[in-house]
Each structure stands twice: as C-alpha cells, then as structure tokens.
Amino acid sequence: MIEGILVEGLIYGILALGVFISFRILDFPDLTVEGSFPAGAAGGAMTALVLGPKFGTGGSPLLVACILCAGLIAGGLAGFATAEIYHRLKVHPLLAGIITMTGFYSINLRILGGKPNLPLIAGNPLLDTVRSLLNGMLSPEFSLLAASMLAVLVLFGILDFFFHTEVGIAMGALGDNENSVIQAGINPVRLRTLGIILANALAGLAGAIAASYQGFADVNFGQGVVASGLATVMLGELVIRSQYIGVQLARVFIGSILFKALMYAARSWGYLAGITPNDLRLITALLIIGSIALSKVGRKSS
C-alpha cells in the first residue's frame, strides 16, 4: 500500500510538474493537460502494442525509451497546438486549452485505434523491463518504486539544470513580467511556446508511464487531471515555502505523494464518514479551496 502511494505519487508528480510549469512559472492557466495526459497514455500504449512484438518478451530499455518518447511527443504536440491557438488567435489561455483539449479527445481516440480503451494484455514493456533489470534484487513492488524514484531523480536533475540556464531564467521572467523579457531582446512568443510544449510534454510523459502502470490507456484518463494537478501543486506549496526553483520542483513531488495519500485515505476509510469514491472530485475541489485559503491566512500572519 505505501509503495503504491509512493509510486503513484511519483508518476502523477510528473503530471503535476507540467501543471506547475504552466500555472506557476509561465503564469499561463493551461487546461491542455486534460488532453495531453491521455495523448501521452495513448501514444505510449500504442507504441508498446506496435513495437512490442519486434523486441520480444521481457522488455528492453530501447523500447522503454520509445514509449517514453511517444508520450513526450504526443503531449508536446498538444502543448504546441495550444500555444499556436493562443498566440495567433489572441484568445484567453483557458479558451486555447479548452479548444485543444476538445480536439485531442478525438485525436486520442484515433491513436487508440477508434476504441476508448486499450489494455496492455499482450505485454507491458515498461513494467517488464523494470522487473527484468531489477530481477532478484528487489520484490516486484519495490523494483517499481526504485525505478520511479530513479526516473523522477533524473527528471528533477534535468529540469533543475534547465531552470538555471539562460533559457530557463528567461522563462521564469516571462511568467513574472513579460516586459523584462522583451527588453532583453527575446521573442516572448517563441519562449512561451517552448514553455507550454515543455509543460505538456511532461504531462504526456506522465500519461505514458501511467498507462503502463495501470496496464491500459483510456481516452478518459485526462478527466480532472488539471484539478488534481493544481491541488498537488498547492499542497506542496502549503507544506514547503521556498523561492528556490530546485525546492519548488521537489515539493511538487511531495505534494503529489501527499495528495495520493489523502485520496487513498478517503477511499479506504472515507466510508466511516460516509464518503464514497464518487466524492473524490469534491474532495479535490475542497482541497484546492482549502489550500488557497490557508496560504492567504499564512501570508497575512507572516
């Protein structure tokens, strides 16, 4: 159970990283993740299905790389679509995201071969590879945990480096004050597009991993992920205050594990308080409200 919460927390933490980058760093309220997360899931699952037989059973690191890339690309394309709609039509970010998310519902169905659900019965290369690499050293549950921790550490390292580079600093400044970026002779449209692509590529990556973890991809995977991603980001901000980007990135994962733990608790023991699984969305909404309210109180008193 605890491994399950940790693994899920880490996987969905990657999704929340995407939400963090768009909402917090770019100050771009992006709903695209509702489309890019399932797009990554669909792309990853389809890649596993199509390329899997060529690599044989037992998995292969190369195949895993292909699956992860499919997730990144599918999500990144959704982000690119939103950025183009936003910049060319000059509409509100929320509308740009809604348009992409709506369109991608159909695109995701097409990726999944016209069916709303694609189970990975024939083989689950990502899990197979993890198990075969760590075979014997760790129990199946802990090998999954070890693998997701490793993946998250690598991702954290890359992003922490990125946000210390010239491009990353400029991206942070863009969300803060676009004018300061323009004054530096940087094209704000290109930079924002890059940021939105990055955010949604991360969501797509999370989708591809989540599909492998759950054993299937579903066109409805995306429902509610913006809200849960936001709740995650805010929970993290509630427990750790920091202006350092490294800490801000790390606390997204802490928030994500907390969120998954809360959801697990609500599912397992919620019946004692009359809470059913149908109420989880309401709990997510209340969590967001509570986090915002609490952060306001905290700011006043400090």
């Binding site: 210390h164 010239e166 491009v167 940087i186 094209n187």
Partner: peptide, 8 residues
C-alpha cells in the same frame, strides 16, 4: 538576443 542552454 536569444538565450543559450548554459548556466545563466
């Protein structure tokens, strides 16, 4: 001008 992928 444009930025690079170098520590800032």
């Amino acid at each position: 001008g444009p930025r690079r992928l170098k520590i800032a």
